[in-house]
Amino acid sequence: MKRIIARIWKLIRGPLQWRVLWFAHAKFMIGVTGVVRNEQGQVLLLKHRMWPADRPWGLPTGYAIKNEEFPETIVREVREETGLDVAPGRLVQVTSGYKLRVEIAYAALHVGGTLKIDGFEILEAKWCYPDALPEGTQESHVQLIKAGTVS
C-alpha cells in the first residue's frame, strides 16, 4: 500500500501535491510581536483597548497577513498602531502549542516616524526602561523584553 501511495504522490507533482498537503495539515494564524527599542534602550509599550483591564500593557503585536514575511508584519503593525517606523532585527522567540496560532517575536529598532496612536486599538503608547515597566504589563511580554535584552 505504501508503494502505491508513493507512486501516486510522484505522479501528482506540483500544485496538486500542495493542495493535498494543505487539506491534510493543521492551519494556524501567526501572531507576531515586536520588542521595539529606541537608541536609549527603552522599550515601546502600548496600552491595548481590547486586552484585559488588569493587563492592558504590552508590546506591539498583530497577525501576519497572507504572503507577508514575519519581520515585515512587525514593521506594518507598529506603523499602523503608532505611526512609528522600525527596522526588524533578530528572532527572539517562537512559541507553538496553541490550538490555532503560533507566536513569533522579533527585536526591532525605532528608526523614525511621529507618534500617532490608533485610537481604536491603542489607548496610550510610551517608552519604558526594561526595569521600569508599568503595572499591568503582560507577563509573557515581560519575558520577551528580558529575552530581547540578551545579545
Rank of each mutant, 00 (worst) to 15 (best):
A125W: 06
K126Y: 01
P60H: 06
C128S: 11
R76D: 05
P60T: 08
G97A: 03
T82Q: 01
G34E: 03
T95I: 12
V94D: 04
K66A: 15
A108S: 06
H141R: 05
G31K: 13
K47P: 01
N67V: 11
R55C: 07
G83T: 04
D85H: 04
K116H: 14
T73R: 06
E81Q: 14
M29E: 14
Q138K: 15
V142K: 15
L84D: 04
D131K: 13
V75S: 00
R79Q: 12
E72A: 13
G62H: 07
L84T: 02
L115R: 06
A132M: 09
Q40V: 05
V43T: 05
V94K: 03
F120M: 12
P130I: 12
Q93F: 01
T61I: 10
W51E: 12
G62T: 10
T95A: 11
Y63I: 13
V92Y: 03
P60W: 02
D118P: 00
L59E: 04
I65Q: 14
P56C: 09
I104M: 08
S96D: 12
L123M: 15
I30V: 15
W57E: 06
L123S: 10
T82C: 03
H110F: 11
V75N: 03
Y106L: 02
G58D: 07
R79S: 11
L123C: 11
V36T: 11
Y106I: 05
H48I: 04
P52A: 07
P56S: 08
L123T: 04
Y106S: 04
L44E: 06
L59C: 08
L44W: 04
K47L: 02
I30S: 03
K99I: 09
G112Y: 08
G41I: 06
V78D: 02
E121Y: 15
E81P: 02
P56A: 08
I65A: 07
W127I: 10
H48C: 01
W57M: 08
E77I: 14
Q93M: 07
M50L: 14
L59V: 12
L133W: 07
G83V: 00
T95Y: 00
Y106F: 15
V142C: 10
